[in-house]
Amino acid sequence: MARLTVNGQAHDLAIDDDTPLLWALRDALGLTGTKYGCGRGLCGACAVHVDGEVVWSCTVAVGAVAGKPIVTIEGLSPGGVPDAIQQAWIDDSVVQCGYCHPGIVMAVAGLLAANPRPTDADIAAAVPNICRCGTYPRIRCAIEKLAKR
């Protein structure tokens, strides 16, 4: 049994404490916006925020985050209204297949919350996520535009 607070809502889940947070979100809570890309902390497709920090959810067990505030991609846009980052992504057609982008948007949200004027190096460090479609140039460009606002 694990108690998770996700996007402002508390849930008691009948799952093992050592279940990775990723699978609790996807299978127990039906929050499929958070993606599986490697299961080993190598790609960032599963990024969420825990206590305001970017965390790759395949690498933490639910037992370790019980009670902490967790935000997923679905929680970034209450009511389905895109936040500023999501809107910038939409406007510039940043996504391609889009499978990596929930994780990347969460990474960028974490970055810009802490550092609204990131340098190139800050961006590279904060977005180690893999995008096999190669949307990195558009990601970089969209972040730079957001930082200029």
């Binding site: 499929t32 939409i90 510039d92 996504v95 948007v105």
Partner: peptide
């Protein structure tokens, strides 16, 4: 024109 699949994909609603 912005991609038609853009909103669903960045909101985490696109169904793969």
């Amino acid at each position: 024109l912005p991609r038609i699949d853009g909103p669903a994909k960045v909101l985490g609603r696109a169904v793969f």
